[in-house]
Design a protein around this nucleic acid. Structure first.
Lengths: 147, 147
DNA sequence: GACGAGGTTTACGTTAACGTAAAGTGCTTG
DNA sequence: CAAGCACTTTACGTTAACGTAAACCTCGTC
């Protein structure tokens, strides 16, 4: 090992003062089962803002959380633009002027409404699925086959 | 009014034997707040199969329900291909051979899983939103402004 | 019979969210 | 030092889900 004194080696990976853990793009993408391309694309879209060591990206906890939130939003069918709306304003909060904050509250209320609608949609779709399921099983039984 | 005997006029719109009510593409698209283009596109993708009177499309209850289900699926972030998977097999059921039916049950189980994951995602995202909401309100208060 | 309101087909355009390929950089290991 | 990873930038390609425009029918109406 000819590494000099660049930074702490990843020897002790679990016993850190909660502040230092970083990730490479490869680690992150494996962790969430996305490609590096996707991670870079999210950065380009303003959803992530990793640091750099030379030309390499270094991701911190904050970035990992953001990525997690982003992917969760995607699973719910939100666009990256919508996700950014919330995620970024969350960061812009500390220095937040009142207008921005009110705008944020507005957006949050909208998201909440959207989620409620989704809940209802899920409920209904479940009913439909159960219905189709029942019918299918009955037809199967009428064919003399067991479930 | 010089319409002859093409079909029942829409005079009695509520007292029909449950069998005859039809819709034009314009009616449907207004009803669901989508463009006619969208409705035609869904047909092209195999999600709708309206009848024809001459060159005009005529939609029945069945088509309206399909459209409703399709849009619900979209709100939940499913692709048209995924939606078609379920919607079409639902129709293919009556004549269903056992293999098709088992395949359908499989698909349904997957959808159910997907919905459960979404429920969890919604739950988590709600927590996040509430959190951000709280923080924002507190910052606002610290600025001497109410809510 | 001109016309306006709806419908139709055909076809090219657009946006989001990446995929994929090429060519280069930096480290470490045989 | 050659080779091999893992990372980087640049840039063009691709797919889904429509939008948009043009050009055409077909009514009932003025």
């Amino acid at each position: 090992m000819s590494r000099s004194d660049i930074q702490a080696p990843e020897a002790d990976s679990e016993t850190l003062p909660k502040q230092q853990r970083t990730y490479t793009i490869g680690e992150l993408s494996r962790m969430f089962e996305v490609t590096p391309r996707t991670v870079r694309f999210y950065e380009q879209e303003g959803l992530l803002a990793p640091g750099r060591k030379g030309q390499q990206r270094i991701y911190r906890e904050k970035d990992r959380v953001r990525l997690k939130l982003t992917l969760r939003g995607k699973r719910l069918g939100f666009s990256l633009a919508e996700i950014r709306e919330v995620v970024m304003m969350y960061d812009a909060m500390p220095d937040g002027n009142a207008r921005q904050l009110r705008r944020l509250l507005e957006i949050l209320a909208n998201k909440r409404d959207s989620l409620e609608r989704q809940l209802e949609d899920i409920r209904l779709m479940r009913l439909e699925i159960d219905d189709v399921d029942h019918r299918a099983r009955e037809v199967l039984r009428s064919l003399g086959q067991k479930a």
